[in-house]
Amino acid sequence: QRHSQQDSHVQYERVGADVTMKCGSMDWDAAVTWTANGTDIDESHLNGSYLILKNVGLSQSGQYFCYEGSSWHLKYQTNLRVGTPPKEPVLMCRSNNYPKGFYCSWHLPTPTYIPNFFNISVIHGTKDMVCEKDSPPKNRCHIKYLQLFSTVKYKVTLTVTNALGKNFTTLTFDEFAIVKPDPPESVVAKPVPNNPRRLEVSWQNPSSWPDPESFPLKFFLRYRPLILDQWQHVELSDGTSHTITDAYAGKEYIIQVAAKDSDIGTWSDWSVAVHATPWTEEPKHLTTEAQITETTSVSTSSFMAPPTTKICDKGAMVGS
């Protein structure tokens, strides 16, 4: 019957390292038994009472116990965590709620398999700024602008530390360079009754943009029929709606919108795509006799282009 008694702790080792574990205070030549995650370890891994693990891999992480041979007293226990030191973290800062402030988010290019601790410092000129961290596991924090229209750059340094090493990265940027709104929201596209070539598109400012009155956004609309790859674009300096007037009749369209502060920064990502098809005339409901004549005439003309489209309009023919 195995008795737990000895101190246990976490032991971090690098992938590929050679690891030697002593069985607590037991002599080298004492008879012992080692287990890993409850499984006895083969004698070939022992050198006397020492456990030797060569070129450890991630799969060798786990709970290691050493028991005294005869009394089965637990003499040593450790939680072996095999991992890697952190690589240079990837840091990104962005102001999607200008002029309130900006946020920085980060991640490691490759996992380390052991716990990492991040420390971020934000310096503006000579001033240290507070970065309010989101609750884990979100690697993100938020900085409030105290001043606007500054020519002094912001310097953000992110340091990552784990038991096997440390790394850092630094970003230096101007206030205006990181302004990038979120995409417009609630994008809606609707046909316009009795207008086979129009689509009405409307959207809203991103809810994260705090003061569109003082910091108006301009928009970029792109649209294309599903059957074509080429987008059409239109830039709109104000307002949150637009009527497309050159849609191909009867063709389903895909539409997206992007936003940008009217003076500074960069364009948002594209909004969620919406689909719409321009209005088309309802087929008329006729009496039986009229239907027969209608059907004979329809079958001979069903390949004619829609009335509103010019027969020689090459573009339309591509779509029909």
Binding site: Y145, L146, Q147, L148, S150
Partner: peptide
């Protein structure tokens, strides 16, 4: 002349 200004003051 510096354009930098306190946000609330500017508003």
């Amino acid at each position: 002349p510096s354009a930098t200004v306190d946000l609330d003051l500017w508003r």
